[in-house]
Design a protein around this nucleic acid. Sequence first.
DNA 1: ATTAATGTTCAGAA
DNA 2: TTTCTGAACATTAA
Length: 285
Amino acid sequence: MPELPEVETMVRGIRSVMEQSVITRFLQCPCDCQPLPISPAFEEFSKRIQGRQIEKVWRRAKRIVIELASSRSNPTEFIVFEPRMTGLALVADPPDVEHLRFEFQLKSASGKSSVFFWDRRGLGTLSLLTEQEFAERLGPNQLGPDALEISSNELFQRLRQTSRQVKVSLLDQKLVAGVGNLYASEILHEAGVHPETISQKISRPRVERIHTAMHRILNEAILYEGSTLNDGTYRNALNKDGSYQNKHRVYAKTGEPCQTCGLVPITRIVQAQRATFFCRKCQRK
DNA sequence: ATTAATGTTCAGAA
DNA sequence: TTTCTGAACATTAA
């Protein structure tokens, strides 16, 4: 589920509780659900993070990164949580206890607290990485520039190198990192670009329109704390709904009149096995 | 009972 | 080499 804005919202929500705190205890599945994939295995994971101070909490593409401070006895290490479709990071009690996967117990100058990782479908992953592993697995060979940091020129250069349809390219995390299925449709609609346009055929000015729309929409979605869809799965770190779903113009709006031209109904097609929504009049190849 | 869902990855074919 | 397709992961709700 979570795309860049949702992950950024969760990061902001857990940051103040986690940064500079010490991990006192790590618990796996306080309930009896299936454990999420975790590497290394729980025993070692737990041992390596026990007593460590958290230096920083930040976002890399659609992943939450918890950076552990180096000390005399420990090197810098990274806890990486990848929420995939239904993962959440919370400082409040999770939506239900059946899908609660991990609890980090923390202590800081201001007292004790907990951060929870919750995941209904259980497709999320959690890993503890050394600096070298982090560079190998989350470096520029695996993930492209962040969608909020890439320049329009670099986006143009990267799109120019592939013959895939532009909607498919935007979902390629090596090309640009952070855009997911929902925001890809919204971005292309605002840019007026047909989702089936071949990436390398898009002119420089039209790539600039995509770039501008990408930045504007992702930043606005962060402002509204992400999109909570009908299934209600996504919540911010306080277990409250986001509100950007009220701003969507095409996603899951098949048959409704386009809000830009006011007359043509929104079309749903499938690209790379994912649904795409767009307006046949406002979006051109 | 069937289908689709905000993500990623892999195998195999074109 | 690149691109595409299908399936897999696990769960729920329409």
